[in-house]
Amino acid sequence: MEPIKVAGITFRLDATKPFYEQIVAQVCGALARGELGLEERMPSVRELAQLLKVNPNTVMRAYQDLERSGLLVTYRGQGTFTTNKPEPVERIRRELAHGAVQDLVGVMRQLGLSREQTMTLIQEVDWE
């Protein structure tokens, strides 16, 4: 499905995976990358559901999940916002980074590279 941009988040939904998980993951990603700032207004469940052509219950479930992780806060009568605390976002950023490193390690091991060889490679890589 084509990417859909809303409130700093770019959603790319893939019909082969549960939508609920993808929405959670993509909101987390946007927060961790800083594309979505703190205390920003999120689209309402209805708006996001209509934009993504996804069942509102799915979006609701994703929002509830994100609220439980402390990334979103809903104020009665005002709507849903991203958290105003940097800690949960920092936690997510670490989790994602950790996951990415895990993936990298997996690939390197498959390629038969040792820890030292990998570290050397990382130090040689151009960061900019």
């Binding site: 209805r46 993504l52 069942n55 509102p56 799915t58």
Partner: peptide, 25 residues
Amino acid sequence: IGAIAGGVQSVLMSTHDVDDVEGLF
């Protein structure tokens, strides 16, 4: 989607074409 977003209304819908409705149900 707008109609069911209120959480009150239910939808029962038949279709032979899955493509449009991957996320709807």
